[in-house]
Nucleic acid binder design. Structure first.
Lengths: 238, 238
DNA sequence: TCCGCAAAGTTGGGGCTCCAAGTCTGTTCG
DNA sequence: CGAACAGACTTGGAGCCCCAACTTTGCGGA
């Protein structure tokens, strides 16, 4: 234990420990800035910075006018950072960053939600959604597929589809606050083998992603990525 | 475009755009705090905050005494946040957060690096590494496997293995600065079918992860996760 | 030409303050 | 009793300042 660690880290580590070991359960209030300065004998800057770090880690959430609280949902990791959320696919931007030319095509049509999508988007099964199929290509070769579903009243048509979801929602006055993803592996469906030129025996990564604005889901998508040739490099600053 | 957006966002968005569209190529210097305050007519707090946000996104990196630079490696996403890096496996902590009791066993032994691990850890193929096999269980049932490799001189033995890598390196005066992961899907090996009780035809997610301290790799591991039953929920604050 | 050193510039930790906007709570008034 | 309102708190944006530690650069002397 280095004695000259920044003081804000003392606060961060103490609160983080309490959250992880359950002393501060989900929903519990975190001391306010003013209380932290007194409790830990630090300046307001340090207290504020500690709260920001914990919020950035997703352990706590700040509510203006009320306070900071331990998040109730386990907040873990995204498959990509938020600046890349504004694309329909998690990995297309990554490849772009690696210098490969990524292009994509899409087409949209209205569909009935059905029970499964109804649950994912918290709408009635008979509601109409806009379904958009995407195919991403890197240097011409197929990379990944994505199918996105949005409630009809939120979908914007025409040229606007080129813009990302976050930007489009922004113009509607809706702020995306959260993204939830789940990932699993499965054998490809025939259409996927075809579209992605999959070799025999190769499975796919299936990412199910939902964008939330508060407690309301505004978009959900299924992203299908070939499981063999695809090795994405992530890296992360500590 | 909302006119009352925070001013720091103007700076963030402008610089981010320049990085993404290539105006600021990898390695290019970002204007300093002082320069940003002049260029964008903002206070030091806003300039500083903008740089911190961009650094947090992994787009730029700050070097004390020198400046901020566009990162040369595409910095994308981790499979888990750094607070969970301090575990040998990406998903064990997630399950713990979901209320499932996670336990694990491990055993270590010295091995010769060989060409592949030598490359991953930037050591000679004849160097000796400490290999540690882990098996993670959730409520008694096998969840995932991990195999971790460390240069012999960095591995700490005995009780200390219970502590996470980041903490152990900290005591050695080594600061982990980066984590790089790649993920792909493949059929399981016989030993994996056995250890994970995999059903026929189920593939596994294979995560290859390396911890870096500056430009020196200090640990690399292979994490094997069943691809079927495993649906991890991530979520992320925006 | 090369070396060493000092000055200037830069990050990151910390401190303090002001303010808008939102939430909470307790009291007063109809 | 119930509704409305005022005052106390809280977050998040923003500004300005000081300082330690580190890097870069340019200058002067050998």
């Amino acid at each position: 234990m280095a004695t000259s660690d920044p003081v804000y880290l003392r606060v961060v580590e103490d609160i983080r420990r309490q959250i992880i070991d359950g002393t501060l359960p989900p929903g519990a209030p975190i001391p306010s800035r003013a209380q932290l300065t007194r409790k830990y004998q630090v300046g307001e800057t340090a207290a504020r910075h500690a709260l920001r770090v914990l919020a950035g880690e997703g352990l706590i959430i700040g509510r203006v006018g009320s306070g900071h609280y331990v998040r109730d949902r386990p907040v873990l990791a995204p498959l990509h950072r938020w600046r890349f959320l504004d694309r329909p696919a998690p990995f297309a931007a990554d490849l772009q960053a690696q210098g490969r030319r990524v292009t994509w095509d899409w087409h949209s049509e209205p569909v009935e939600a059905g029970p499964d999508l109804g649950r994912r988007l918290k709408v009635d099964g008979s509601a109409t959604l806009t379904r958009t199929h995407y195919i991403f290509r890197g240097d011409g070769k197929p990379l990944q597929l994505a199918t996105s579903y949005e409630p009809l009243e939120l979908a914007v048509h025409g040229e606007d589809e080129r813009r990302g979801l976050v930007a489009r929602m922004h113009t509607l006055g809706i702020k995306i606050t959260e993204v939830v993803e789940s990932v699993h592996t499965r054998p490809p469906r025939p259409a996927e083998i075809d579209a992605l030129h999959l070799a025999a025996g190769v499975h796919v990564l299936h990412v199910e992603r939902t964008h939330w604005a508060g407690d309301r889901p505004v978009e959900t998508s299924d992203i299908v990525i070939p499981g063999d040739r695809f090795r994405v490099m992530y890296s992360m600053p500590l």
